[in-house]
């Protein structure tokens, strides 16, 4: 098993932390993992992205040329990463951030209306874990117990009070994700 995932969006959407939660969940599942972020000026208001690799073997390069899954949260990220998904791979996008939907027909495309759901429930901070929940529904490569362990390890202790809300968001994300084609 080797899964190479790119998560991309605006700085502040929780892209890097979503990657960290996923990577830490992989650690809990005893996978080899790598987390390679974009860093620097890209993070300040511009686009941010992170490549996460989970594998049952040693990871050669943490830098990927193509991806099994792309999770994109804005138009710029969709434009940039849609061409880099492997044939047969998965593309997940948040409906709110995308004006021109993906066009490729040789990949599986899913959408998740997480931004609206978070606005409705007033839980904007659960946005990234909700998206993560959508992804994990499609690719249950890590068990839920390990995701929760990974989440706990990723968060500072002062944020542990929000663990139940995050768990609920992950489950809700799984319910919200829709197949586009």
């Amino acid at each position: 098993m080797k899964e190479t995932i790119i998560i991309a969006g605006f700085g502040g959407q929780g892209v890097l932390s979503m990657g960290k939660i996923l990577a830490y969940s992989g650690v809990m599942q005893d996978f080899e993992v790598s987390w390679m972020p974009s860093y620097g000026p890209e993070m300040r208001g511009g686009t941010a992205n992170v490549t996460v690799i989970l594998s049952d073997r040693k990871i050669s390069s943490p830098i990927a040329n193509e991806y099994d899954t792309a999770i994109v949260l804005n138009q710029q990220s969709l434009d940039k990463f849609e061409p880099l998904i492997k044939t047969g791979g998965v593309l997940i996008y948040d409906t709110n951030g995308v004006v021109n939907p993906p066009t490729r027909t040789d990949i599986e495309v899913y959408s998740i209306d997480a931004a609206s759901e978070c606005a409705l429930t007033g839980q904007s901070k659960m946005f990234n874990t909700m998206i993560l929940g959508g992804y994990l529904k499609l690719r249950p490569i890590v068990e839920m117990s390990n995701v929760m362990e990974g989440l706990k390890k990723s968060l500072p202790e002062r944020a542990w009070a929000y663990l139940p809300q995050n768990e609920a968001a992950i489950i809700r994300g799984g319910e919200l994700i829709r197949k586009v084609r």
Binding site: V27, W35, M36, P37, Y39, P62
Partner: peptide, 8 residues
Amino acid sequence: AIGQMMEK
């Protein structure tokens, strides 16, 4: 790259 990436 090595400074910014996370691994086990």
